[in-house]
């Protein structure tokens, strides 16, 4: 028997909680594959990005090929195949934010963090991304840090936002210690 066909207990790279959530998710829809996109997003939330192991695990759970998973994942702009910072800062520069200083905001983040678009700070704490419309047009300019919205910003608020995440990270670190 070739190793390809060996029957073994499926191992997973996900935490027991996420694994259990996935087990429920694939049962939820009329068709298993509908769980794919949420699974990729939640897997990314836990692992940080779609590593080869994530792709393989998700493919196995849904019963599709890894090529299929990559093909779908690479279509969606929130999904990434490379790690981002602990806090991924997504600055909208689309028209409504642009009109109200989105680029100035983005520039300020670049200066403060010393990284460019899709860059990660050396400590891995922050990554910066210029993104398309995030649906906060009437409260422009707006950003998302991971999934948190911050709206009606101006560049002078950038240091404060960064500090709040730095302290959050520190508090988490201490809690772990």
């Amino acid at each position: 028997m070739s190793p390809k066909n060996m029957k073994e207990e499926p191992l997973t790279i996900f935490s027991p909680q996420l694994s259990a959530r996935f087990d429920a998710l694939v049962q939820k829809y009329p068709v298993k594959r509908s769980a794919l996109i949420p699974m990729l997003l939640y897997a990314q939330d836990e692992v940080g990005y779609l590593s080869d192991a994530v792709v393989a695990d998700v493919a196995r759970r849904i019963g599709i090929t890894e090529l299929d998973v990559r093909s779908v994942a690479s279509y969606y702009s929130m999904l990434r195949f490379k790690p981002a910072g602990k806090y991924n800062i997504q600055v909208c520069t689309n028209i409504c934010c642009m009109l109200r200083g989105g680029y100035e905001l983005f520039d300020r983040f670049r200066e403060e963090l010393g990284v460019e678009h899709k860059g990660i700070t050396p400590d891995g704490l922050f990554s910066l991304e210029e993104v398309e419309c995030i649906g906060a047009c009437s409260w422009a300019p707006a950003i998302q840090v991971n999934y948190d919205f911050h709206d009606e910003l101006d560049p002078d608020r950038v240091p404060g936002i960064l500090d709040s995440y730095r302290s959050q990270a520190k508090a988490e670190g201490e809690a772990h210690a």
Partner: peptide
Amino acid sequence: DESEPGTCKDH
């Protein structure tokens, strides 16, 4: 899937 730039009502 509200995504059209300028639109934030479903939000």
